[in-house]
Design a protein around this nucleic acid. Structure first.
Length: 478
RNA sequence: CGGGGUGUAGCGCAGUUUGGUAGCGCAACUGGUUUGGGACCAGUGGGCCGCGGGUUCAAAUCCUGCCACCCCGACCA
């Protein structure tokens, strides 16, 4: 019964115009709305519900790995931001300044936090004195502001919601382990909960976080073949602790600098879910973050007994899934389209004909497959179906990524791939920034990461032909 | 920050060339008929035409300054 035909004309086909498709989905699914401030979006209830589900599940993972939530101030004094040279240089072009309080000019300008490393460092300096105070495993959920030139809902907004973990450790080894541990938490989360396959790796020096020793990343591929950095984990070693003088006395009564990490994910993940799983009928949500997993749509609901039966089913299902019903006086067809656009994983139709036979109709969002099932084992059937959808959309996303992953041995191949099958490009790299710059200039592709899983594609750099050091994943990115 | 585009009802747009009663579709509201893929009929309400100056008897329309947003690049999660 699978059916690929497009049923809603309110959404532009993604093959025709992907950016427009994206905007249409955001609006028609009522995830977010534009606001009167450029680059700032209103996250609507449905979009926020997705974020909350995502956030709660991530938060649980952080707590399982020993982290505690805190809250830092919104404002950072200018002098504090300037303590670490690379950091301030990296962020200066995109910070918002507060220069006035009430009617008076401020003695010292404040920045609205673009990230909170400096605040955590300032605090850690005060509370860490002994090896007994370590490690400190803090995280905060908050908003940050970065004055971006180009903005798009969820993918890049001036203000966005995120979490930033900031930890301090006794040794470099421990901070490295933490960095990788949290990268893995992100990767598992994306794959298991968001059904998005990711590639784990390290950023090149050019793409590294301002002030970090190493930056690690998870990279995912969108439906249109563009890459999206979906989470990052940084190892600071003792770079920030030296700038902020965060020292502790070790067991041998010697002064030591702490070793730090930071790691973050943002509302951008909602954008990733849209662009990885969505189709021409709208959003397709992984069941694990779907605010509504099953929508009950009555058919012929003026007929006696239909609303009663639909209510009864909803109440039954509430015990096992997130379920809603729609008894509004819109036509059934309207409702079908509406919940397809909203990406609800399973639709349950119930009408007089079904009630007679003791059955209902289940339609899955991912492949539009329609099945008639008995009301007897409905709970089990639906739980199984939701698991199937979760797995199926992961596999589809993985297939898309594999289909769009190519190997380039020289720059002709490199450019050709981007023209014909845009996606991830695996290519060898000599390690020189000049080649990275040149590739970007020629193709608009950037190094996404040096993946942990290396392959020996050849001995020579794809760009200059000199001896290669790493295999790098390249791509055009959001 | 460069290039392009758009501001008229909640949304999408026409009207601007050639100044002369502010329109259409969707949505909303009321009543009725409908209901297994965005139903149909009839009716109703809704506007500082982005903002400020100017020209004119008269400006959505012409002139001028500003502002905002969108798209494509460069910068970034």
């Amino acid at each position: 019964m699978a059916n690929d035909k497009k049923m809603v004309s309110a959404i532009t086909d993604m093959e025709k115009d992907f950016p427009q498709w994206y905007t249409d989905v955001v609006k028609k699914a009522e995830l977010a709305d534009y606001s009167s401030v450029k680059g700032c979006m209103i996250i609507q209830p449905y979009g926020y519900a997705i974020w909350e589900l995502l956030k709660n599940q991530l938060d649980e993972k952080f707590k399982e790995t020993g982290h505690e939530n805190v809250y830092m101030p919104l404002f950072i004094p200018e002098t504090l931001l300037q303590k670490e040279k690379d950091h301030v240089e990296g962020f200066a072009p995109e910070v918002a300044w507060v220069t006035q309080g009430g009617n008076n000019k401020l003695q010292e300008r404040l920045v609205v936090r673009p990230t909170s490393e400096t605040l955590f460092c300032d605090h850690y300096k005060n509370i860490i004195h002994s090896y007994r105070d370590l490690p400190k495993l803090y995280n905060q959920w908050c908003n940050v502001v970065r004055w971006e030139k180009t903005t798009r809902p969820f993918l890049r907004t001036t203000e966005f919601l995120w979490q930033e973990g900031h930890t301090a450790h006794a040794t470099a080894e421990e901070s490295y382990e933490e960095t990788i541990r949290m990268l893995n938490v992100y990767a598992d989360f994306c794959q298991d909960i968001l059904a998005i396959p990711v590639i784990k790796g390290e950023k090149t020096e050019k793409e590294r976080f301002a002030g970090a020793k190493n930056t690690y990343t998870i990279e995912s591929l969108m439906h249109d073949g563009k890459a999206l950095q979906s989470g990052t984990s940084h190892n600071f070693d003792d770079i920030f602790s030296k700038a902020f003088e965060i020292q502790y006395t070790d067991k041998d009564n010697k002064l030591q600098y702490v070793h730090q990490t930071s790691w973050g994910t943002t509302t951008r993940l909602v954008g990733a879910v849209i662009m990885v799983h969505g189709d021409n009928n709208g959003l397709v949500l992984p069941p694990k973050i779907a605010p509504v997993q099953v929508i009950v749509v009555p058919v012929n609901m003026q007929k006696e007994g239909v609303i009663e039966k639909a209510t009864e089913i909803t109440e039954r299902l509430k015990k096992v899934v997130r379920v809603k019903n729609d008894f509004s006086d819109k036509s059934p067809g309207w409702k079908f389209s509406e919940y397809e656009m909203k990406g609800v994983p399973v639709r349950l139709e119930i009408g007089p004909k079904d009630i007679e036979k003791g059955q209902c109709v289940l339609v899955r969002r991912d492949n539009n497959e329609k099945i008639f099932v008995s009301l007897d084992n409905l709970e089990e059937t639906i739980l199984k179906l939701l698991d199937d959808v979760q797995l199926n959309i992961y596999n589809k996303a993985l297939e898309n990524r594999e289909r769009r992953t190519s190997v380039a041995k020289n720059m002709d191949e490199f450019s050709n791939i981007l023209d014909t099958n845009q996606g991830f490009i695996k290519a060898m790299w000599c390690g020189e920034k000049e080649c990275e710059d040149k590739i970007k200039e020629l193709t608009a592709a950037t190094s996404r990461c040096i993946p942990f899983e290396q392959e020996e594609l050849s001995d020579n750099c794809v760009c200059c032909g000199k001896k290669a050091k790493h295999m790098v994943i390249w791509g055009r990115a959001y």
